[in-house]
């Protein structure tokens, strides 16, 4: 068992510079937060006196709500700034936008943006902590943390990530969830198999050791301990990335039948929002193998642990 270590990051921009033991420590804090979320009165004073601001330049009600809940359960003040492109389309630079919001004196910003790297840019211009809530195709670290946490809790007989296999199916190219999960699972010693049409699986992702591509679903699922289906967006058809939903469903839909090839205890995950019967068979999503509901439930405690870890101990 790994020793719990102090988490000494000011920001959570992506998982690349987080060590395996820091992630394990964060998950232990998450265990404690799970207990809080199981209480009748879900409120602790741990972040009293801190102010957290959500800066969503790209809309996402569920992620924002999950973070907001995580902050409020810990008694933090929460400010919401839905940029939604409005002020930026008027020609305000990113830096000026931040300067305006900085006047509100938040201790931490939760940032979502369509462009990769924006949380990095912002972190250079403010003293506040930054949590990346999804930037372009790059990273969605809290999603990967909650996916990994879900596997840790829900995989029957869990004994660590080493030797486990995660299969991610779908539009990996545009997926920050996939990139963050690749980073997390390979760091912890698991293997990641990427599956989907060749147009959506960039070869360069094999630069991560422990990652391989596989273009046939039945091979990709063989022996997998966890299978994650990614949301398939219709817009991708216009870009010439795949021909039709029918063809996609026929070859890449994760089904109950297909799951028979996986490890007997294999779990099925989906980062949501789900297109039922497109990337995942509806029956499978409701089956015992599915941990999709648990993923959603783990969102808040994981984000509570992230906020706690970044805010407490930074001193004033």
């Amino acid at each position: 068992m790994m020793e719990a270590v102090q988490i000494r990051h000011r920001h959570l921009l992506d998982l690349e510079d987080w060590s395996a033991s820091e992630i394990e420590s964060l998950w232990r804090t998450t265990d404690a937060m799970m207990e809080v979320m199981q209480r009748k009165v879900k409120k602790v004073p741990s972040l009293q006196g801190f102010t957290v601001a959500t800066l969503f330049f790209e809309n996402s009600t569920r992620t924002r709500l999950s973070f907001e809940r995580a902050a409020k359960v810990q008694s933090a003040e929460v400010l919401n700034f839905a940029a939604g492109g409005s002020s930026l389309s008027k020609g305000e630079s990113l830096k000026d936008t931040l300067r305006t919001i900085d006047a509100m004196q938040a201790d931490l910003y939760i940032v979502r943006h369509v462009a990769a790297g924006t949380p990095y840019q912002l972190s250079r211009w403010t003293d506040a902590s930054i949590v990346n809530a999804g930037d372009g195709r790059r990273a969605h670290p809290t999603q990967a943390l909650l996916d990994g946490y879900t596997f840790r809790r829900c995989f029957e007989g869990f004994d660590g990530f080493r030797g486990k296999r995660l299969t991610i199916v779908g539009d990996v190219m545009h997926s920050r969830v996939a990139r963050s999960n690749i980073s997390l699972w390979t760091k912890l010693g698991a293997e990641v198999v990427l599956c989907g049409p060749r147009t959506l699986l960039p070869a360069e992702l094999e630069q991560y050791s422990g990652v391989r591509r596989c273009f046939r679903l039945e091979e990709a699922i063989e022996g997998a301990h966890a299978v994650m289906a990614l949301r398939m967006q219709r817009e991708r058809m216009q870009g010439g990335l795949f021909p039709s939903l029918a063809e996609y469903q026929a070859r890449y839909q994760v089904t109950t039948k297909m799951m028979e090839r996986a490890h007997p205890h294999a779990i099925v995950m989906h980062p949501g929002p789900m297109n039922r019967d497109v990337e995942i068979e509806g029956v499978l999503a409701d089956s015992e193998r599915s941990v999709i509901e648990e993923q959603v439930a783990h969102g808040v405690p994981v984000r509570m642990a992230v906020l706690y870890s970044l805010l407490v101990g930074r001193g004033r």
Binding site: F57, L88, S93, K95, D96, H113, A115, G136
Partner: peptide, 11 residues
């Protein structure tokens, strides 16, 4: 200008 350049990388 700085304002034009200090945008996100897509813009």
């Amino acid at each position: 200008t700085l304002a034009e350049k200090e945008l996100d990388l897509l813009q």
